[in-house]
Structures are given as structure tokens and as C-alpha cells.
Computed example of a mutant assay.
Amino acid sequence: MQFLLRSQIKFFYRPSGLKNNPTFHPDSIVFTLVNKGGDDWAINVENTSPYYASFSGATVASGGREIDLQTTMLAPFSKDSWTAKLSDSLRGGEITLKARLINDYGSIEEIAHDLHP
């Protein structure tokens, strides 16, 4: 009989001088759909808070399909660009981003955001 245990521990130091509530607010993340020409697109992500934002994943729903995105941890007051894991075009209609944010307690909070081309 074999058992495999895999765990990951993240440690964040928060200086006492940080203002605001240490509970992260998903409203501090700004998502923007960017057309890079033709079928090439990306999601620009901006963290406007003084706290790190950890994501366990994200998808974009377009034309009845969900497209997985390559996500990253966002440092305070930083920007990044997320792209599809596999090359895929967005179809017309409503485009919705769903991101899974990991909070301070290790729980997943899902953020849903409508994107406009």
C-alpha cells in the first residue's frame, strides 16, 4: 500500500503599516479583454490592492464554451496578461470570466466578471 501526500504552504508577511482591511477584496482586481489582432486575444489583469492575489485558475466563457486561462499570482499594485492555455478564438455574444481566488484561509472564492470586447 502506498500513500502520496502533497502539500504546499505559502507564507506572507504583512507589514503593520499596511492600510485597509487585511481581508482581500475581489473588487481590487480589474479584468480587461484585449484584442491583439485577428483571433489573438488576452485578459489584462490589474491588482489595485496592497496585497498579493493568488489564483487557482480561471476560464473565459464564450459562445457556449469555456476556455482555460494560464493564471499567475499578482503582486501588490501589479499588472499581468493572461492567455488561453490552448490557442482558441472567442465567439460572439456575452463573454464572462470566472476566476478562482485563494483567500487567506485557503478557501476558493469565485469571481465572475462580464468582459466587453
Rank of each mutant, 00 (worst) to 15 (best):
Q2H: 08
F3E: 07
R6A: 01
Q8F: 03
I9H: 05
R14G: 06
P15C: 01
S16V: 13
G17V: 02
G17Y: 09
L18P: 04
L18T: 08
K19N: 04
N20D: 13
N21V: 05
T23H: 04
T23K: 11
H25C: 06
H25V: 04
D27M: 00
I29N: 01
V30Y: 03
F31N: 07
F31G: 05
N35S: 14
K36P: 00
K36R: 15
G37C: 07
G37F: 04
W41Q: 10
A42C: 10
N44E: 15
N44F: 03
V45K: 10
V45D: 11
E46T: 13
E46G: 00
P50M: 05
P50E: 07
P50R: 03
Y51A: 01
Y52C: 00
A53E: 02
A53P: 05
S54C: 10
G57E: 11
G57R: 07
A58K: 00
A61L: 10
G64I: 02
R65G: 02
R65Q: 14
E66M: 12
I67N: 07
L69C: 14
Q70P: 00
T71K: 04
T72K: 09
M73E: 13
P76C: 08
P76Y: 05
S78K: 10
K79S: 12
A84Q: 04
K85W: 06
K85T: 13
L86N: 14
S87G: 14
D88M: 12
D88W: 06
D88R: 12
D88Y: 10
L90K: 02
L90I: 01
R91C: 02
R91H: 11
G92F: 01
G93S: 07
K98D: 06
K98T: 15
A99Q: 10
R100C: 09
L101R: 01
N103Y: 01
Y105L: 13
S107D: 15
E110D: 10
E110S: 09
I111G: 04
A112M: 11
A112C: 02
D114P: 14
L115G: 13
H116V: 11
P117W: 00
P117I: 00
